[in-house]
């Protein structure tokens, strides 16, 4: 499909990518203004600090990190909006920030909080402009639009002014606009931001289905872990611009959370269980205990032995993904360093 990328080569290839923003300090007062003409003052913001990863064709990868971690900055570099301060990247075999035509025609960047459409006209008219800009052949355009209309239920929305659409409706239309040219790579930045639960689910199913039908490679950020759990087998976690984890979502808890969660149900009321581990919740006959990962088996055995007949049920699990992520992000320094 992409002449420049052999089938097995990564679609997104990022090496030691770094971005430092220079923010002009605003000074007040006349003298300061004059001084700033001569010598400008900058504050540097390190947004992305040398991250390396690659993504294979057709993968759907979740890009996680708290606010300010550098996710959006990375996606902007990968879509060619920003020049990095250092490091290299190729997407579809192109250096993104050279903004070559073949690259731009092969990818899309969708941002949940930004609109790409003209608000004063119906989406259908914007679509026709996009069709010409991307030089989509008429037959392919019709097929794609029909497909998107069906998947996203766009029918009634296309001929209304964009400014009259609700947030959820607009997001569906934005999705269609961003995918009309059938990009092989899609960068989705918070695509479900601010949408209600059912619309989130709708968008989520759409992304999954789009990936299956088109084989497009997708890198997605989201605040909602549900999005990630539903869509991504693989996640990349960054914090303070540094890559913390890159691997299977299923292994994230094992790698990132140093503890397991034991839930016990008792026949009577819960007594003092603090000798078994950190009791995070207990009420009536239910209790949840966090124990160090390595000692999970031994503690469980001890619980069974010492509680004996009192024990009605017991289970040992990884903590839920949200909790793991929150813990990781709560740590000020990269976890990789603190646990080493």
């Amino acid at each position: 499909m992409y002449a420049l990328t052999p089938m097995d080569a990564p679609v997104v290839d990022v090496r030691a990518l770094r971005k430092v923003y220079r923010v002009t300090e605003r000074e007040t007062g006349l003298a300061a203004t004059f001084r700033s003409f001569v010598r400008r003052r900058y504050r540097e913001v390190l947004a992305v600090d040398g991250i390396t990863f690659h993504i294979d064709p057709g993968e759907v990868v979740g890009f996680l990190g708290p606010n300010g971690a550098g996710k959006t900055t990375t996606l902007k570099m990968l879509s060619g909006l920003l020049h990095p301060t250092s490091g290299e990247a190729t997407v579809l075999g192109h250096v993104p920030w050279r903004r070559e035509g073949d690259f731009l025609r092969g990818m899309t960047l969708l941002m949940g909080n930004r609109s790409q459409l003209v608000w004063d006209i119906p989406a259908a008219d914007s679509f026709l402009v996009l069709k010409e800009i991307y030089a989509v052949p008429a037959a392919q355009y019709k097929r794609t639009l029909d497909e998107l209309t069906e998947l996203l239920d766009l029918g009634p929305l296309l001929h209304k002014l964009v400014r009259g659409l609700s947030l959820g409706e607009r997001m569906k239309v934005e999705f269609a606009a961003g995918l009309l040219h059938s990009p092989g790579v899609a960068f989705l930045d918070e695509p479900t931001l601010g949408l209600d639960i059912s619309m989130q689910g709708r968008i989520r199913r759409f992304v999954a289905e789009y990936n299956q039908r088109s084989g497009a490679t997708i890198l997605l950020t989201s605040h909602y872990m549900d999005d990630v759990v539903a869509l991504c087998r693989r996640v990349i976690v960054i914090h303070h611009g540094v890559l913390l984890y890159d691997g299977a979502l299923a292994d994230l808890a094992e790698r990132m959370a140093p503890y397991k969660r034991i839930s016990v149900t008792l026949r009577g009321s819960v007594g003092d269980l603090s000798t078994f581990g950190e009791v995070v919740s207990s009420n009536e006959n239910l209790a949840t205990i966090h124990v160090p990962r390595a000692q999970a088996a031994e503690r469980t055995a001890r619980l069974v032995r010492e509680l004996g007949d009192q024990l009605a049920d017991i289970s040992v699990e990884d903590p839920p993904i949200e909790e793991v992520i929150d813990k990781v992000f709560a740590s000020e320094r990269p976890l990789a360093e603190t646990t080493a």
């Binding site: 003209v118 004063d120 006209i121 008219d125 914007s126 026709l128 402009v129 010409e132």
Partner: peptide, 18 residues
């Protein structure tokens, strides 16, 4: 030329409001 024509159609509509 085709791009310009579509842009023209779209922007005349938008401009009509101003």
């Amino acid at each position: 030329i085709r791009i310009y024509r579509q842009l023209l159609v779209a922007q005349i509509q938008a401009a009509a409001q101003y």
